Simulated scan of single mutants.
Amino acid sequence: MRLNIAVIPKNGIGPEITTQSIKVLKAIALEFDHQFLIKIADLNSKNSSSNEVIDLCKSSDAILASNDSFLQSNTLSAQLNVYASSTIVKSYQSLAVNSPLKKEVISGTNILFFNELNLSNQLSEKHASKNNNYAFDSNENTRQEIELVAKKAFKAAQTRGKRVTLINKSSTSQVSALWSEVAGNLSLQYPEIEFNITNLENAVTQLLLTPNLFDVVLTERIISNVLIQQSSVLTGSTSLQSTSYIGHKQSLFFPTIHNHLDDTDYKNPNPLASILSAAMLLEHFGLYSESEMIKTAVNRSLELNITTPDLNSTYNNITTNKVGDFIADFIMNPHDSNANFKNIHLGQSTII
């Protein structure tokens, strides 16, 4: 497959972590015989402008970013007509010790959250009185907006555990009622998918007690944000979640959270969420084997403690670059990477 991929490294640690994702994508291209034409936006050049970055993104098939700050501070999301967001929350056995929950509770957790992403909801009517004794926010969704994101959720479930759960805010909310109606009607077109509706209070409880009940979660944006933040206890780290903004032509992929995003002095930032964002990008284009190879490599890096200091209590000499080297090495030599373990520590990866 031939893909044009724009990369927005932003500032701070952005260039360092996206470099590892590019390294991994190049390894995938070589191993699976693809053509990935990768262009990096020059955000630091005096001659570079926001319009040039937007033009680069609009001429690409997909965008890989270090975070969503550029998307939020510019008109990129609007110009690309993004309409949905998805975030993956997955548990890793080697990180289970970092979770406050029991290992047997979080084991096997793999949840894909979908929510609508539209300007109309962000720009809904808001009002506060001058003395701050009264405030008002409206929440709006159209049938078309809900149907677009619901279709993505049901189609994603076809390649996963074949379960979709709609989480509503309130049984008395007219917006929630519309979500239930639209998603319920759409579920009839996917008879192989188990469809359930639950309220937010129950979902919050079940997410902590029996997270494996969830496969694909469909909900409003404000609810999704709350649930995704809470779900960080299931993964043992916030630095492994990746998110996509889905558009009609181009989609954007980036780490959900990074605690040191704009810290230029932070040494050896964790690149795994950025690398997993690249896996999401490939899956978006139906390259499931390629995406799975990246996920397997990430899991192996965690098992072998080839991770940056934030996740590593065994070795203190693993750099951001070494993590990227190992994952690229694993993709091209999945049966040899154990033998190369010592070389990776010495910075002598077979990938140049």
Score class of each variant (00 low, 15 high):
Ser231Glu: 09
Ser171Gly: 04
Tyr266Asn: 08
Ala328Thr: 13
Val175Thr: 14
Ile294Tyr: 01
Arg163Ser: 09
Cys57Arg: 04
Asn321Val: 15
Tyr315Asp: 15
Asn132Lys: 07
Leu207Glu: 03
Ile146Thr: 07
Glu220Cys: 08
Leu281Gln: 08
Tyr245Gly: 01
Val105Tyr: 02
Met280Leu: 11
Gln144Trp: 14
Ser94Asp: 13
Lys39Arg: 08
Asn51Ser: 15
Val298Lys: 01
Thr235Ile: 15
Ile318Ser: 00
Pro309Ile: 07
Asn81Arg: 13
Met293Lys: 05
Ser86Gln: 14
Pro100Met: 12
Lys46Val: 14
Phe326Met: 08
Leu240Asp: 07
Asp336Trp: 10
Asn343Arg: 06
Val226Pro: 09
Tyr288Ile: 15
Pro309Arg: 08
Ile13Cys: 04
Ala183Ser: 09
Ser85Asn: 11
Phe32Trp: 04
Ala65His: 07
His345Asn: 13
Lys58Gly: 11
Pro100Lys: 13
Gly286Leu: 14
Ser239His: 01
His345Gln: 13
Tyr315Pro: 09
Ile54Asn: 00
Val82Asp: 00
Leu208Glu: 15
Ser48Trp: 03
Glu201Ala: 10
Ala297Gln: 06
Pro100Gln: 14
Thr210Ser: 12
Thr235Lys: 03
Gln79Lys: 11
Ser69Trp: 01
Ile223Leu: 01
Thr75Ala: 13
Trp179Arg: 00
Asn259Lys: 12
